[in-house]
Design a protein around this nucleic acid. Structure first.
Lengths: 196, 196
DNA sequence: CGATATTGGATGTTTACAGTTCCACTCTGG
DNA sequence: CCAGAGTGGAACTGTAAACATCCAATATCG
């Protein structure tokens, strides 16, 4: 990489700003730059020095969030083991970067407009998940009557919903993975052999 | 009702503005009033005559959307018949008001901040669905290991996702109800007796 | 310790949108 | 056909946020 080693101070400040932006915008996409500067515990001036234009910070925040998501998914090793077990690991991994997910996927216009503009070499966090789903379909674990893309969307949507519920206290953080996994695996209907 | 019969012109204009607001804001919550005036095919002046403040239009749009959603659900008669059949009717009904749903549920802050402020006698579109879910759980059709509130959130989330997919052409409008119903009923896994 | 980089407060400029006013035009109903 | 309601173009004000500049205080590192 040609990235010149910025002084440690610089890079730490930049990270603080970007992570603060993701965190604040995850909860309020209309938050202003002063709000973000405050959350990052830097002056408005400093923020503007690092990101002369709002658009630049938005792009950096999106890239940072996508990297975090992609990294979490990679750590879950979706290519290994039984597809259901892998899926549970992925859901648990997503929960650890829920802020990033709520930021990027909470505003369709971000994915529509900003991501394509961003670094074209960005890791697409979706791909390994799509691969996992295809593998699961091939092994007869996932429903192959549904398109892999649809299954992936449902995976994101149900996870996202669970993050929101945890956020507002309706769902215990501890139950998150199990609830999402159960819902994805069996839907919302009672199982055949279950007693009412 | 003490609602004095506004001239037909007035009420038609008002409806045009409110429905345009819902439609435009469903796709872009940051859309400006001029954009909405244009979509409604009225002048900016006229819009401001009807809604002197932006906030008023937002509230009217939310109320209009909630009424549409509540009406659609009511028409689906969720209290009658087999819970699964009722659920499918509800999903189909929601699809007919997808714009309203994407508007109200696409921005958490709307539900958090605006709805409570709105007419307190507003029909809560959720309630009949929660009732349906409870009924289904009692009859052993829906999973009673999951909370009714969670099931309802999943119902909304999966439907919402399907609307988005239809919007962007990834899912055929014709397949919407069947896909959502299948996903909700069986999750994303292959059925036991299915052949790979 | 001293040079340089980094920071942030104060202050100013610009832009875009919300909200306002005025008046001429055009429907519509009696 | 004419009176009044309804409409909308144009031009204006106020406000809030984005963006820019200056300089003094402070941190960092050779």
């Amino acid at each position: 990489m040609s990235a010149k080693r910025a002084s440690s101070a610089r890079s730490r400040t930049e990270r603080a700003i970007v992570t603060a932006a993701v965190s604040v915008w995850a909860r309020d996409r209309a938050a202003t730059l002063p709000q973000i500067a405050e959350a990052a515990e830097v002056g408005r001036t400093t923020l503007h020095r690092y990101f002369p234009e709002r658009e630049g910070l938005v792009r950096a925040a999106v890239e940072h969030a996508l990297e975090a998501i992609g990294g979490a998914i990679a750590e879950a090793e979706p290519h290994d083991g039984h597809p259901l077990a892998a899926m549970r690991r992925v859901v648990a991994a997503l929960a650890s970067v829920s802020e990033a997910i709520m930021f990027v996927f909470g505003d369709q216009s971000l994915l529509r407009d900003v991501v394509p503009t961003a670094d074209p070499a960005l890791p697409a966090p979706h791909d390994p998940v799509i691969e996992l789903i295809r593998r699961g379909q091939a092994e007869g674990v996932f429903d192959d009557q549904l398109s892999a893309e649809w299954i992936q969307q449902v995976l994101w949507a149900v996870s996202y919903t669970a993050f929101e519920q945890v956020e507002q206290g309706t769902l215990a953080k501890f139950d998150l993975t199990a609830t999402v996994a159960r819902t994805l695996e069996r839907g919302i209907t009672a199982q055949a052999g279950e007693r009412a």
